[in-house]
Amino acid sequence: MDWTAIAVTVKLAALTTLVLAVIGLPLAYWLATTRRRWRPVVDAAVAIPLLLPPTVLGFYFLMSTGPETVPGRVYARLVGGTLPFSFTGILIASVLYNLPFAVRPFASGFAAVDRRLIEAARCLGASGSRTFLTVVLPLSWPAVAAGLVLAFAHTVGEFGVVLMVGGNIPGVTRTIALAIYDDVQAFDYGAANEASAALLVFAVTVLAVTYALQRRTLAL
């Protein structure tokens, strides 16, 4: 087992999930409750990675964050270094790529919360954020949990974006999916088999958890 690659993968997946919780929950709540006209546009933008090949996203990410670009220069000035071929680079790309896998379950969970309960909370003096924490979240947590689990699992199995943006640097950007690819290229089928089997078991477990959470949402 390539434990270094597994460590990079877990770190990437955990941080991606964390960032998605921080920016994805408010975004999903906004999408689920707003009546603004341009909501469908934002909805579509979030969903783009579902249809786009990961390599395309990776390509545009590279093109827009290189050392010669404005974002690249700002990043170099503020943080130092470059985004492409760094861990931060694959983290940002991975957050963008996983946005729909977290936001869509969040949003459908929030949308299923009876709107009148939200209105009732507001009329009882609760602010928007307090309403979210005391009414919306307790009534939709299975959907939120499902979204986080899906985002985590999807990052663990991510290949195209990480390869394009991260390069395949051992200990930095080389995840388990890339390690399997390398093993196969090197005709090391034994190692590839071991890692693949581990990922398969992981995927099946995650799906079982997700479906259990979805049943829970329906029952609530």
Binding site: R116, E119, C123
Partner: peptide, 12 residues
Amino acid sequence: GVLFQDYALFPH
């Protein structure tokens, strides 16, 4: 204070 049509009590 608002009383909603079917009361909108918090189920949880």
